[in-house]
Nucleic acid binder design. Structure first.
Length: 108
DNA sequence: ATTCTGACGATCT
DNA sequence: CAGATCGCCAGAA
């Protein structure tokens, strides 16, 4: 019996993101078997307000900090990432391809 | 009930 | 290559 909701899984995976690494909404969605529900992942993050979810480590598929407007201020998300050693240039993660943490490859 | 929007992404034109 | 459209699904007006 799956008592675990889609959103809960999102939080679960998000918490597993290693320090200094990032992933994408689509990657998480795909890992959960909802490849075309990337938007739901983003929506889940919105609910992650009360969770211990490092939402700043989740960006869109090209490494752009699309959700930075949902954090306090205008550069908190970028600040948090750079604090972990993730360089951000023009709202985009530098070496995203290298820092990308794929739950499919790391967890599966 | 209907329509629009939204931390996305793939596909089509 | 850029813009438009569709799919996914929840929430707000």
């Amino acid at each position: 019996m799956e008592e675990v909701s889609f959103f809960d899984k999102v939080y679960e995976v998000a918490r597993l993101i290693p320090y200094g690494r990032v992933t994408s909404y689509g990657a998480i969605a795909k890992y959960l078997g909802a490849a075309r529900s990337a938007r739901m992942v983003g929506w889940a993050m919105n609910n992650s307000h009360s969770k211990d979810v490092p939402a700043h480590r989740v960006v869109n598929r090209v490494g752009v900090l699309t959700g930075k407007h949902h954090f306090e201020g205008t550069n908190l998300m970028q600040q948090l990432l750079e604090n972990e050693g993730v360089k951000v240039r023009d709202n985009q993660v530098v070496d995203f391809k290298t820092l990308f943490w794929d739950p499919m490859a790391e967890l599966k």
